[in-house]
Amino acid sequence: MKIGYYPGCSLHSTGIEYDISTRKACQVLGIELDEIKDWICCGSSPAHHCDELLSVALPVKNLSLAEKGGLKDICAPCASCYSMLKDAQLKMTDDQTRKDVEEVIAADAPGDIEVLHALDMFVDRCGYDAIAEKVVKKLDGINVACYYGCLMTRPPKVTGKTNFENPTAMEELIETLGAETVDWNLKTFCCGASFAITNLDVVLELTKKILVDAQASGANAIAVGCPLCHANLDGRQIQINQKYGTDFNIPIFYFTELMGIAFGVEPKELAVAKHITEVEDFLQERSLL
């Protein structure tokens, strides 16, 4: 199975583990990822904050590059990229927007391309059974709080998800890998995203709420599917502990890393050592390292 790949800027830098683990998991499952040649940034929040037209034109340019490369489906692991691409497709149904965007990219709008989040790709295209077949190391002793954040499921008009208030696809996937999942409240709460740069207090407060709820629900690890969620949950625990007098040391995994570990890929190859909140001891205790 060949699927186009749009890593986005974060996966080449702060979210490098997500890129590595997604590629590894795909390799095991026989998915060939074909990176879109010369892809550009989707514009992310700043684009839709300050330029209505470019916030559609930038993602569409990427879709057009994908079409040029002969790609029919695109996997975007970053929740923000995924949302921008899907949102642009929806906005392109408006005739005036379509005309303006075609003028900006100086080309005809691309035809039908399906945009998938990495989770959709694994769940919808491979299925739980195919994933279960590849599991060689059961993830015993990990109680995972599956964290979706905002843009993997919302807004439903864009993502097409019907269970956007209580999604469960990641839980089913993680359970397939032999880990346990917990039922918790804040799985679609916001972590504060890019406010980490502009107003850190916002991120510390929101991220603290998420960590508190995950721990209170009995989780000893959190799985995420977005590089920004990971940066905040993983990178801000020390600052949260300093500010609120808490004692968090919760490993934050990309769900693809957990897939990789269960598939028998060496955690070293998955670059789990790059996490700010270290996970080596946690994995060692469960003989997964």
């Binding site: 080449h12 830098s13 940034c41 992310s44 700043p46 300050c50 502009t198 107003n199």
Partner: peptide, 23 residues
């Protein structure tokens, strides 16, 4: 806050580089 500053810098960077340069 500084939201506007970040947005502006982001868009300028994008305009000349095509991709976000986080550092």
């Amino acid at each position: 806050g500084n939201v506007r500053v970040l947005n502006r810098l982001w868009m300028i960077m994008l305009r000349f580089m095509g991709r976000m340069y986080e550092v």
